[in-house]
Structure formats: structure tokens, C-alpha cells
Amino acid sequence: MPRISDFQVIERGPQATLTIYSDVELKQIHSEIFESHKKVAAYIQQLDMKPSGPFFVIYHEFSKKSVKMEAGFPVRMERTGKEDIQPSHLTSGLFLTALHLGPHQEIPKIYTEMNQWLEQNHFKTTGVSEEIYYNQENSRVKENQLVSMVLIPIEKLET
């Protein structure tokens, strides 16, 4: 049961974040995401703050062997970084979104569906994709209960 929502076009304003930028081998993505989540969450707590939204990953670049990604949390106002945790921001603009239920390894199927929607509805992508992870696998949440949102920045094609 991968996609659990219709596709939606949303507009989002800019958002301050604290993130870790990584260039990681594909086979290490899951562990890198887990470590980034843990480190950024601990730093935000150390600042006596709470995230202003769920954990996210922006996928800047894929190759056959590695991925350049940025993982972190939105925060209410820009803060200074520490070591590999740095201030950044979520970009503003129009996004095509869809919710996914299930293992993260199944999310690529949604990208295929989104690309078809973009073509059929005369839109094109304008940047890099983002995934928001609303929960994490643990003793109470099983892999098939993971909820994620995929966001792709878009603009309408000239017709």
C-alpha cells in the first residue's frame, strides 16, 4: 500500500532548518539518515528548542554509488550550527506532494507516479526532491506503518 493520498500541489514559504549535509554510499543511506536524525534532534534539545516540524531529507544528487543529501529538522528561527550540524533552509515555492505508507524502500514507486502526473498536467520539476518522515520504525511502529511525504518542486509549463 504505497501511496495513501491524491497528488496535491501546495505552496510553501521558506523555513529555517538545522541539517547535516552528507555524501554517502547508497548502501549506507538508512544508517546515515538514522544518525543524522539522532544528532540533529540532540542538538536542538541542547539549544532548549523543539523542532517546528518533522524530520526531512533533501536528496541533492544521486549517482550509481552514492547520494548527496541534507537531513534535519525545521526550526522556528535560524540558529548557529555546531560541527557538522549547520543552519540551512527549506526552499519556498510550488511543490507536488504525495503521502506514502510503508517501507521507505518503496518510496521510489511514488516518484514514477509523480513524474507521470507532472507530464499529464503540464508541469516540470525545478529542483531537488524532499522526503518528510512523520514517524520512525521502533518497537511500536512497524516498517509497514511508516508515513512519509514526498515533495517535488514544480512550475507550470508554458503552453
Rank of each mutant, 00 (worst) to 15 (best):
E158N: 14
L26D: 03
P103K: 15
V150H: 08
M114R: 10
P153F: 09
Y111Q: 06
G93E: 08
N138S: 03
E70R: 06
Y59P: 00
L47N: 01
K64D: 15
G72L: 03
E119N: 13
H104S: 11
K39H: 13
P87F: 05
V75R: 13
I10L: 13
L94P: 11
E83I: 01
P103N: 15
A98L: 07
G127N: 02
W117M: 00
K50Q: 09
Y43S: 02
F55E: 01
Q28S: 04
L101Y: 09
L96F: 08
T17E: 03
K27R: 05
E83T: 01
G93Q: 10
V40K: 01
H89G: 01
E155S: 08
E155Y: 01
M49G: 00
S22E: 14
N115A: 10
S52E: 09
P103T: 11
I152S: 13
I152G: 05
D84C: 02
R3C: 06
F95T: 03
Q45I: 08
P74Y: 10
N135H: 11
G127P: 01
G102A: 04
K82S: 14
F7Q: 05
K109H: 11
E119H: 12
S63R: 00
Y43E: 04
E11A: 01
V141L: 08
I58S: 12
K38H: 14
Q46A: 14
S31M: 07
V40G: 00
A98H: 04
E106K: 14
V57K: 02
L90F: 12
P2K: 14
S139N: 04
T80Q: 12
V24T: 15
S36P: 01
Q116L: 12
R140E: 15
K50M: 09
E78K: 14
F56P: 00
